[in-house]
Design a protein around this nucleic acid. Structure first.
Length: 489
RNA sequence: GGUCUCUUGGCCGAGUGGCUAGGCAGCGGUCUGCAAAACCGUGUACAGCGGUUCGACUCCGCUAGAGACCUCCA
């Protein structure tokens, strides 16, 4: 590949050619979930977006280390750095240990990521497993004069930091605006400025998750974990940091501030942010209560869902939009994605049926080049998919006899799907046979009966069998000398 | 209120200063006993108003509408 992957870097607001710091190695850090609730459609977007990045870098030959964390402590219910820890709150409500909450929802997250065919990251560190490192980072920041202690809690001193650095660089903010616009919330009494953020919080008496430190018995601030775990596993400076756009401010901004305060330099070379999934034009999120969990999606058990949608339908749906665009949820869009995905997969299966010609009327090398161009242009999966539909057209036209294609062409088509649809985009053909031999045999028996009836021109019988099987969810296609069938869901 | 983004044909959703996105749905045709699938054909889409330009959906300005962040959120 002469041409290179170009990615949109949030911090420079430009598309930039990706140059790994230490090729052939590439390091990616992505903010994972706070495990206090069931994973929802919103969680699927960054997971799938950065899964594709992970897969593509690997495909290009990089040795990728992909770190995606689990936040299991320190993420507070509402800010001003007050309020209850999200996980503790859930534990209190359900009368279980906080770590039981963590374990349960971590397992749930993994379960649904597996269903979506999201690869496991190379390392999945937990915030609670890195308390010592977080305390070390606080000490460094404090020594450099960018933190202050108050009543056993430690806060980052944004004003001090801003004398020499630009706090707000990533999100495009200036401190004066923050002075003017930060809302006055209760409980910021300890902080010098409302926009200062907690590095360490002293635990209140009822707080369960607490660790000893020289400041107090307490727990770390939310932003600290990512600064610590990214650099611990990827190095003081590393390639790519990803996450949802909603984390841009304050989370990622604070991460930069912490790293620069401690080490005097930024750690991240390329920042990538996926956009939000919306429902009726509004962001799908916890606070609005308008989110749909992945389980509800896969089972159709949410009131806004017309039906269940399979994991691959969801994956395909997400990949049909560019990751930096908002993507609006609707039943119409989902069922369109479902049908489109089915067409794509059917065509792949039908490659076997293409009659082999001696010569080829097509140039498939161009198509392959175009697929690379799409991915190299900031992971433009919608364009990539449109090229795969061109391959679909070629396959179906060849079977219909409108195009000619030789053995090499057929192999190239298979490779195109193998590389781009399956390997890079992580799609998989979902089961269409019954998986049950006896059931399959019975269906074949019925369809052979129908074939006999058709030969007798007993169309009344043949149609009756077809209608009844269709009603049972078996899709039948007649072919020249027989039939094909598959189970619908 | 501050900062920023978006507005594409029935729906979803790419993209570009002049050249077909794609999917789903619709319409016409071919094939089929019929249907399904498939194939072929089919849509004067780029919020509105000005400006720059030989030429703008694409650049600039204004107007209208929607959204995001500024508080936890992927």
């Amino acid at each position: 590949m002469e041409q290179k992957l170009v990615i949109y870097n949030t911090i420079t607001r430009k598309k930039e050619t990706f140059e790994a710091l230490h090729p052939p190695f590439a390091g990616i850090y992505v903010c994972g979930p706070t495990v206090y609730g069931d994973p929802h459609l919103g969680h699927a977007r960054p997971a799938i977006t950065f899964d594709v990045l992970f897969r593509y870098l690997d495909f290009l030959g990089y040795k990728v280390r992909y770190v995606r964390n689990i936040t299991d402590v320190g993420h507070l219910e509402n800010d001003a750095d007050e309020g209850e820890d999200k996980i503790e709150k859930k534990a209190r409500l359900e009368k279980i240990e906080p770590m039981e909450v963590v374990q349960y929802y971590t397992d749930r997250y993994h379960l649904f990521m597996d269903k979506l065919n999201v690869l496991k990251p190379s390392i999945e560190p937990r915030a609670s497993g890195h308390i010592i490192e977080q305390l070390q980072l606080i000490d460094k920041i404090h020594e450099k004069g960018f933190a202050y202690e108050k009543n056993g809690s430690v806060y980052f001193d944004v004003e001090a930091y801003s004398r020499k650095n630009h706090y707000g660089k990533l999100s495009g903010r200036v401190l004066d605006d923050l002075y003017a616009n930060t809302r006055d919330l209760d409980g910021q009494g300890e902080k010098k400025n409302s926009f200062d953020f907690a590095l360490w919080k002293k635990a209140s008496p009822e707080h369960i998750m607490r660790w000893p430190s020289r400041w107090s018995e307490g727990f770390p601030g939310w932003h600290l974990e990512c600064s610590v775990m990214s650099t611990k596993y990827l190095g003081e400076v590393f390639d790519i940091h990803g996450g949802g756009m909603d984390l841009l401010f304050p989370h990622h901004e604070c991460e930069i501030a912490q790293n620069v305060a401690a080490e005097g330099k930024e750690s991240v070379r390329y920042w990538m942010h996926n956009n939000m999934i919306t429902i009726n034009g509004q962001k799908m999120g916890k606070s609005l209560g308008n989110f749909i969990t992945l389980e509800e999606l896969f089972t159709g058990s949410h009131k806004v869902l017309a039906k269940a949608y399979s994991p691959m339908t969801i994956r395909f749906f997400i990949l049909q939009a560019h990751y930096r665009s908002t993507l609006d949820f609707s039943n119409e869009a989902l069922s369109a994605a479902e049908k489109g995905f089915e067409r794509l997969m059917d065509a792949y299966k039908n490659i076997e049926k293409i009659p082999v010609s001696d010569n080829s009327s097509l140039n498939l090398t161009d198509l392959r080049t175009k697929c690379f161009e799409a991915l190299n242009d900031d992971l433009n999966t919608p364009i990539l998919i449109s090229h795969l539909f061109e391959a679909v057209r070629i396959i179906n036209s060849s079977i219909a006899g409108n195009e000619k294609i030789n053995k090499e062409g057929i192999d190239e088509l298979k490779k195109l799907f193998g590389d781009f649809a399956f390997n890079v985009m992580g799609l998989v053909a979902e089961g269409s046979s019954s998986g049950n031999q006896i059931l399959s045999d019975v269906i074949e028996l019925m369809l052979n009966e129908r074939l006999e009836a058709k030969k007798r021109k007993d169309f009344e019988s043949s149609d009756r069998i077809r209608n009844k099987l269709t009603a049972l969810g078996i899709e039948i296609k007649d072919t020249k000398d027989g039939f094909e069938w598959k189970l619908k869901n």
